[in-house]
Amino acid sequence: MGLRLPSLQALLVFEAAARHLSLTRAAAELNVTPVAVSRMVARLEDALGFRLFARTKTGLVLTDEGAKLQVAVASGFGEVSDTIEELKSHQEQGETVTLSISSGFASQWLLPRHERFHEAFPEVNLRLQVMTSRLYGPLEDADLGIRLHKPGSEHEAFCFCPEVIIAVCSPGYLAQYGPLDAPRQAGGHTLIHLEPTTHAWPDYFELAQLVNRASAKHVSYSDPGLALQAAMLGHGVLLGWLLAIAAPLNMGTVVPASKRVVETGYNYVLECRAHEPSASVRHVAQWLVDEMRAELKKVDPVLASVERVRRGEPG
């Protein structure tokens, strides 16, 4: 059987009286009468079986027992107060949701939605872990992450986007140099390479059944966001993944540079690290999936103008 403690109200009144060493000042703080404070202290002393205060000519003083109890009560109330402040601070700051994504997707798709995200989730702090390499591997400390999954993953709950490879360039570049299928310049195209990647230019030419023109110039990047920026600025033709270039295609900042695109059968899936994620994580995940579905629906007319070649991952 646990120890039966005095009521919280009695301890609260005692703490105020002990701090002020005045029934009158304690009563003013607690918004009660001095008589009520005196009665509560007397009841507490009766329940404990020892005196907490002694009356002197100069006023109240704590007994030895009262002094020890004051330290304990003040410490307990202080810890409760600190804990409440900490909890309130966390509530005001909101939950942090960490998202692991590629730099190209972050810069071209997510960041333009920054305001819309915070309108939808004012209580959520979004933290990004940006990957410059391929979207493989565990999420580690991220709550959500986009990862490439094998064929069949289109049936997963948070299937995000199919892996579709599209050669893209700026509208100005296309007007000057023509498409990959029929270049207008004798020197050929400038091919922008991304390293590492799931499919390189030789893979694309083989899968799309296009001629790999040896006269092409080459430039390489290790960061998907920078590579896409180079293509948007008219520096060459980039192999773009629909995940990162759906938004630029819809905005017209890049256009298909070939009449053929490659569907690998793989899919990008939005993974949750926890088996039972928090409500905020689930809601953020569903919002991201819904936003991407709307983006893919918008880009359908662009993809309808090209031929889709379905192939597996190159061996």
Rank of each mutant, 00 (worst) to 15 (best):
R4Q: 13
L8K: 13
Q9D: 15
A10V: 00
E15W: 01
E15K: 12
R19N: 04
R19M: 02
H20A: 12
L21E: 12
S22T: 08
R25F: 00
R25L: 10
A26W: 03
L30V: 01
L30G: 00
N31R: 14
V32D: 00
V35Q: 13
R39H: 07
G49M: 03
G49T: 03
G49I: 01
F50H: 10
F50N: 03
F50A: 04
R51T: 10
L52T: 01
L52P: 00
F53P: 00
L60H: 00
L62H: 01
L69A: 03
Q70N: 08
Q70F: 15
Q70K: 15
A72R: 09
A72K: 06
V73P: 03
V73R: 06
E79H: 09
V80C: 05
S81T: 09
D82I: 07
D82T: 12
E85N: 13
E85D: 15
E85P: 00
E86C: 01
Q93L: 14
S100M: 11
G104T: 04
F105E: 01
F105C: 05
Q108K: 13
H114R: 11
H114V: 05
E119D: 13
A120L: 08
L126S: 08
R127A: 15
L128R: 10
V130E: 13
T132S: 14
G137K: 06
A142L: 03
L148V: 13
S153C: 11
H155P: 00
E156S: 14
E156Q: 15
E156L: 15
P162F: 11
V164D: 09
V168E: 02
C169F: 02
C169R: 09
C169V: 06
Y173F: 08
L174E: 03
Y177L: 02
Y177Q: 08
Y177K: 07
L180T: 07
D181E: 11
D181C: 10
A182N: 12
A182H: 13
P183C: 05
R184A: 14
G187L: 08
L194D: 01
E195F: 05
E195W: 02
T198E: 12
W201D: 06
E206Q: 14
A208G: 09
L210K: 01
S215L: 09
S215W: 04
H218F: 05
S220G: 02
S220C: 10
D223H: 04
P224I: 04
P224Y: 01
G225T: 00
L226Y: 03
A227C: 10
Q229V: 04
A231P: 05
I245P: 03
A246Y: 03
A246Q: 09
P248G: 04
P248V: 03
L249A: 02
L249P: 02
N250G: 07
V255G: 09
S258K: 06
R260M: 06
V261W: 02
V262Q: 01
N267E: 15
Y268F: 15
L270E: 09
L270I: 10
R273T: 12
A274W: 04
A274L: 11
P277N: 11
H283M: 15
V289T: 12
V289Y: 04
D290Y: 05
D290V: 09
E291N: 11
L296W: 09
A304E: 14
A304C: 12
E307L: 12
R308G: 03
E313W: 11
P314L: 14
G315E: 15
G315V: 13
